[in-house]
């Protein structure tokens, strides 16, 4: 197990510039969303046990702590999606480093507002807003 941890640590502390941080974040968000997806299919499966059982599951998600984790999930999906699109564009088109910089900035210009909008709709009800 030790070499796994040290490989991971080297990955995180390696000084590769923004491209490397983009990759680390892409990897962490991808793993996070995949783990959520397993949970999500299990929670949906409970609908087969009827209305009351499903209501209990939904109640678990209504907990403020869960709503906060949900905002984290929203950000993860949106970052992974638009950074993934950037990776695809760079792979197939291989633009100049100048264009690559612009693409990286564009990712955040899309990801931040979209995440904030979805976060507002998710969190506002628990503060009695909206």
């Amino acid at each position: 197990m030790g070499h796994v941890i040290s490989a991971f640590w080297k990955g995180i502390t390696y000084k590769g510039g923004p491209g490397h941080y983009a990759f680390i974040l892409h990897r962490l968000t991808g793993i996070g969303v995949a783990l959520f997806l397993i949970l999500h299919i299990l929670d949906n499966f409970i609908i087969m046990f009827g209305e009351e059982a499903f209501a209990e599951v939904l109640n678990l998600y209504a907990n403020p702590v869960m709503r906060l984790l949900e905002v984290f999930l929203i950000f993860s999906v949106i970052y992974h999606a638009f950074n993934g699109l950037r990776v695809i564009i760079v792979d197939f088109w291989a633009p100049s480093s100048h264009v690559q910089r612009t693409l990286w900035i564009l990712v955040w210009i899309v990801v931040i507002p979209l995440s904030l909008i979805a976060a507002w709709f998710t969190l506002a009800p628990i503060f009695g807003l909206r």
Partner: peptide, 13 residues
């Protein structure tokens, strides 16, 4: 990835 950009992000929103 391109397919999911459409259907997963739309599902979430």
């Amino acid at each position: 990835g391109v397919v999911l950009l459409l259907i997963a992000v739309f599902h979430l929103l």
